[in-house]
Every structure is written in C-alpha cells, then in structure tokens.
Amino acid sequence: MRHYRPILALASCFTLVASSGAYLETPEPWQVTRLNTFSPSGRPGSDVNAHLWANITNPSPIPAGPGVTFDASSANCTVNWVYAGDYPYGHVFICNTTDTEESSSSSTSKWTIEVLEANVTSPSATTNMDVRFTLTTNLTVDGDEYYKVLVGTQHFQVGENMRGSCGGSGVCSWTLRDESVPVLVQPTVVACQGTC
C-alpha cells in the first residue's frame, strides 16, 4: 500500500496541471482592422493637430478560470497631438471599448493605446512607429474576482504595412495596406488573478 501513495499523489498533481493547462495557452492574436494617421500642413491658420485612429479586436473569449471566460471585445482608439513640436510618445490614451454582442458573461473590458518611438533610423509618430495596445478585463462570478491584463505591440510603417500620400499643401494621410488587413498583434499576459 505504501508504494501506491506517492504514485497516487503524483497522478493527482499531473491531473491538476493537465486540467489547468488550457488557461496557460498563448492568447489568440488580436486583429488591427484599421489604422490611419494624419499630419497637418503646418501652414498658418490651418489645423495644427495630428491624429492616429485604430480599431482593434480580441476575437476570442479569454479563459479566466474553470468554466469561466472573459468576453471577446473590440475598441476604437484615437490619439491626438499638436504636430509641430509635440509627440504622442509616453502618453496612454483610453479607447472606446465594445464587448461583443454574443456576450457569454458579465465581464468588462478596457482598451488603451500608446504610440511608441520606433527603434529605427527615422522614427515618426505617423509613418514609422510602434503601437502598444493594452486590454484589461474583469469578471466576478459567485464572489470570486478574476482579471487579466494583456499587452501587445506591433510596428507600423509606410512602405511595409501602410500606404498613403501627401498633398501639395503638405497634408499627409496614411492607412493600412489592403493586403495587410488584419494586422495581427500577439498579446502576452502581464498580470492576472484567478487561473493564470
């Protein structure tokens, strides 16, 4: 009988790890379906603001715990800054978040966006930049609180996954190349509570 107890204990541990393995999987990639930038001409009397607009979707529910998931969600994000002499770097902007219509739980989601200076020779907040998306999702079930914070960063650059043009007035407008849509962003979990 003694010989079976360690084996039984090991089998129980293996079962626990195997059953929770689904929650340790790499999250599904997010999808950026729109990313546009605009820079003004800089002429006196014209608009001085630059803009970046992005749509991002987490298309799949995220495991939170046994039998519990966070809903899929999407967001519309806007970054505005004064183009001449200012940059959006180092600022976090809150996105307008929408949970999917086929909600399976009462989870809440919040998306944010940051424009990062790309580690390249000619970085630009409108034509050659890194964009970081952060998704925070929360859920309470039977008094148990669950949350996850996921972060994903992707590089966007004219000539690679973006295209556009500048007009004679100096106004420039850029967007995702059709063949690049959706641009995938691989998130990683940076904080969580519940089954991580």
Rank of each mutant, 00 (worst) to 15 (best):
R2W: 11
H3E: 11
P6C: 11
I7F: 08
L8V: 04
A9F: 14
L10T: 01
E25M: 09
E28S: 15
F38E: 05
P44V: 15
G45A: 06
V48I: 14
A50N: 06
A54D: 10
N55H: 13
N55L: 14
I56V: 15
T57K: 11
T57A: 10
P66S: 03
G67V: 09
T69G: 05
T69D: 14
F70G: 00
D71S: 00
D71V: 02
A72T: 05
A75G: 03
N76E: 14
C77A: 07
V79S: 05
N80F: 09
Y83N: 13
A84S: 12
G85W: 07
D86E: 11
G90Y: 08
H91V: 15
T97H: 10
D99C: 07
D99W: 02
E101N: 07
E102V: 11
T108G: 13
S109R: 11
K110N: 08
E117T: 02
V120E: 06
V120C: 02
T121V: 07
S124F: 00
A125Y: 05
A125N: 05
R132F: 00
L135D: 06
T140L: 09
G143C: 08
G143P: 00
D144E: 14
Y147A: 02
Q154M: 03
F156S: 02
V158C: 07
R163V: 01
G167T: 15
S173T: 15
W174G: 04
L176V: 06
P182M: 08
P182A: 04
V185L: 01
V185A: 00
Q186F: 05
T188M: 13
V189F: 06
V190G: 03
